[in-house]
Design a protein around this nucleic acid. Sequence first.
DNA 1: AGCGCGTCTGTAAGCGTTTGCAGTAGGCTC
DNA 2: GAGCCTACTGCAAACGCTTACAGACGCGCT
Lengths: 337, 337
Amino acid sequence: MVSIDEVARLAGLSTATVSRALSGRGYVSAASRERVRIAAQQLGYVVSSRASSLASGRTRNIGVVVPFLDRWFFSTVLSGVSSALMRRGYDITLYNITADEDVRKDVFETALRRQRVDAVIAVAIELDEDETEQLLALGLPVIAIGGPNARLDTLTVDDFALARLATEHLLSLGHTDIAHIGANPEFDIDFHIPTNRRLGFEQALADAGIAPNPAYLEPADFTVDGGYRAAKQLLGRPGPRPTAVFAASDEMAIGAVLAARDLGYRVPEDLSVVGIDGHELGDFFRLTTVDQFPLAQGERAADAVLAKLESSDEPTAHGELPFELIVRGTTARLPKA
Amino acid sequence: MVSIDEVARLAGLSTATVSRALSGRGYVSAASRERVRIAAQQLGYVVSSRASSLASGRTRNIGVVVPFLDRWFFSTVLSGVSSALMRRGYDITLYNITADEDVRKDVFETALRRQRVDAVIAVAIELDEDETEQLLALGLPVIAIGGPNARLDTLTVDDFALARLATEHLLSLGHTDIAHIGANPEFDIDFHIPTNRRLGFEQALADAGIAPNPAYLEPADFTVDGGYRAAKQLLGRPGPRPTAVFAASDEMAIGAVLAARDLGYRVPEDLSVVGIDGHELGDFFRLTTVDQFPLAQGERAADAVLAKLESSDEPTAHGELPFELIVRGTTARLPKA
DNA sequence: AGCGCGTCTGTAAGCGTTTGCAGTAGGCTC
DNA sequence: GAGCCTACTGCAAACGCTTACAGACGCGCT
């Protein structure tokens, strides 16, 4: 491995000047800068992050904490984070909080404290008091995406508003018998996203003067399969059936579309379906959805964390993330009886 | 940040002994070990990876190079890598090779050379000569998954055999008019996976004495949509139509199933469909597939790289990855005319 | 001419660990 | 009792950078 001394020797300068030239800190004459550049290039020198970070306290590395790697939403956010950070010359190290409690504990108590990262991005993690405290105690800039947390700088999408928008879209098409696939009202107290979407849904109905129908609330687990089963229940039960379904995720919405088809209902003629997310398969299924631009969420989080890193005083505040109704082919006007 | 000196003071020992006690290297009496444990625990001490890696040359961090983060296969492999490594106390830093040539160049020329990682896992990257050279020049253990590379230790799944197995499954059900959705024979010279799958398919047909029918070869881009379009072409064209389709990925197979349904063909009665991968949605669609266990691939790569790290002489050799035919509901016996 | 200032450079002291080496103590063998 | 070995410990020198500090120089000012 070639070290900074060799570059200094070849450039005929001290290591201090080489360091300054390469990092862009402090005064270096244009001539020296150029000689350093050439020498470094010639030797194929790359600064050792080990030594550099020990000496400077900066690692040029951001920790990203995610609950899942193999689910579309999270890997898409991660992809956004990654592309924004790599562009700026930062590396990213990954902390995958799994269901395993020991691993999770280890991440907060040990892994994140190894001084490997300059800052942390937490993606859609429901953090308890202790974990929030531990993140804060790192003394590093932290940005959380989703799951509002009063003590952390958070980028959130307004799930309540998202759900209301999706529901209002159905209402504006004349639907009044609208079902919701999503949170289980009995079990979702601790997990905000599904709950907020359900509440937004209910608010939209209330605003339209429609009383909530408990039979039109079907819990599901945010998978295609879950959405499929839920929709089958909603549509297959004897008695009145909904003319529209608002699913709390695109994957469930896709499941609902497939369930409707399997039961012989046409989408959107017999059933309108709207989802949330902006899933990559949405286009294929012509799914109407409220896109929350997960790739852009990742990029914004990366930008925000770098901004905090560069000027720690900046009051990053709590950012609101954009969303947009994308009307495609799975929703239509309620036919006149 | 509490340092090793404070632990040493509290334990009444030298920093050297503390270091040895915590790392488990060299002689330390049981009593000292215990005192160190307690002192470290009490102070909440965590070794600084900055200092530790500078002094020891070990980072306890593995670099993982992936071409995509937001595609199911890659994020699943990554998930496997991550869980296996975290379990062993390793961190993982991510290098996402995007389409952007500059980023790709930067990863190989700079990012990987920052001494941030002890070893590298390259997932399904088609490496050219230079890149292979650069990986080797790192002087680190490297494991590649997929894309056989004679100069690197590689874990490969035998795509040729996979494809042959899938095809033989269809043959054994009595099908002879079998179409393939996958590689474009004209453009796939540089990308081995699709090509090998096509060749395996053709070999199986040849072994069964069936002449390849160029009209039954439909290129597609490995997405659901691509599979859908390809299947529509295959089934919609006037003239003879295939009774079975072998798609080179599950996502394309799912597209094919949906296309068949949309055209009014029943699966599997009118058309059998088999895919490759073991995609998470395969179960939902009752898709017959050849599973290649991507999660396990990631875990195996992680184990292999750690094994190389621990005993560098071990001849890891070129490992073959397992695969298995999973027969579900999209394939059936060819009905007697 | 003398002064202050901005620019540039080098010297050397860290940064927080790990580890080679030397030293001690105790137990064995002869 | 000498000699050797093993188990344990501490001292201090790395590891490869960054940066505070100080010195040197040229410039414009008084």
